[in-house]
Amino acid sequence: MTDTDPQVADDGPVRFMPQLISLDYTVRTNPVAAAFGEALADGRITGHRCPSCSLVFVPPKGFCPICTIETTSADEVVIEDRGMVTAWTVLTPIQYHGQQERKDYALASILLVGADGTVGQQRLIDIPLDEIRPGLMVEAVWAAPEDRVADDRGYGLGTAIDGWKATGEPDAPASEYEGHTL
């Protein structure tokens, strides 16, 4: 942080200024996200099935963004904690201060069985990086129940799932995921 420390340039011209912006927010978890989080804590992944177009959104949004109609708990469906990799990236962690990661790892988008959209940024576990491919079938490795904390804004799966490991099933055919680039 020496570059941002104003004490460094004692007598030379002041060319930069540090600006620390800190703001406090009160995040309110909306009822749809709260219900999703409760289900996750119980080891269930839920979504909302649009009563108009039948698409299943995971996590549920409380509405269908295609039909622009509201969805409610009456539209809730439980989907499998198993799915197929549609896309992935391998991250090489830069060792900045506070970095927890040491080795290359993969994050994937996964199309869960029963869902019509992928969940993104999912950690793949015990899968050699050069064996990851679209259609690879994976299943959830759930965190211990006490560690399952949902994202308070309703994004993603929070800390409920440690990652995803290969199931050993045959790969899903491209026809099952080709509409999902991410």
Binding site: N30, K61, G62, F63, E70, R153
Partner: peptide
């Protein structure tokens, strides 16, 4: 007042 809804949830019925 102190809505718990997301902005998107808040907007949907208004835009409709």
């Amino acid at each position: 007042v102190d809505t718990a809804e997301s902005e998107t949830q808040m907007l949907l019925p208004v835009i409709n």
